[in-house]
Design a protein around this nucleic acid. Structure first.
Lengths: 110, 110
DNA sequence: AGTTATTATCGTAACTTTACGATCATAAAT
DNA sequence: ATTTATGATCGTAAAGTTACGATAATAACT
């Protein structure tokens, strides 16, 4: 088939998977790092920092925006991107909860 | 094209993206939660808990294993899966570093 | 108005993912 | 030895992803 069985999973897991998917490509991680570093927002500078074409970067930005992790505001001719604080913290929180739920076994499990 | 430009990105970003990709599907998040909850390892019980066929679950398990997040040991007829402590902590750490690098702007950035 | 810069979108090619049924491999049980 | 259970792998179809060039849309500049 190809489409994931979106039903039958919890909203939390679907949401978490959506955030994880946004991070699931090195280019998008790199874009987020650029946005983290520059703090203030940028646009086509991202294209210059990455070895990807403008259209490809634009597509990655779209995916990050659709996942909610970033927002882009039009500022005249340019578009200014930055981390979306709320979603960022929510993703951080959800991932933290998942990962901190692990309690190592005393003896080897397997 | 379709293949990601693996070169040209940092090892860290590639590694982080690999972990994120493992989490990028609700079924795999659900599998990890099952493994987290049961602590001790399981196998075909996962198939019973999810609305997916055995072969599909097996494929998801393979991806989690290839990402390093879980390990599976053969125990007679059954196969026993569990979280891989080292990779789990590394993924947690890498995600933590990324997410905690965000400093909200005083005034709205965009 | 015409040009230029910036970014999004379209079209397309190649590859990957998701999902399932069917089959195979292995080990336990009879 | 044959059956049974468990799980991996194969084959395949449908859908999604990644990447790029080309084109379109918009706003600033001349």
């Amino acid at each position: 088939m190809g489409a994931s069985k979106t039903a039958a999973f919890t909203d939390t897991d679907i949401h978490l998977a959506k955030y994880a998917k946004a991070l699931a490509h090195p280019a998008r991680v790199a874009i987020l790092r650029i946005l983290l570093e520059r703090r203030a927002c940028i646009c086509g500078d991202i294209v210059e920092e990455l070895p990807l074409s403008q259209s490809t970067v634009s597509q990655h930005l779209k995916e990050l925006k659709e996942a909610g992790l970033i927002q882009g505001d039009i500022d005249g001719k340019k578009v200014c991107y930055c981390i979306d604080a709320r979603a960022w913290k929510q993703a951080q929180q959800m991932l933290h909860v998942l990962f901190s739920d692990y309690k190592p076994c005393d003896t080897n499990c397997c």
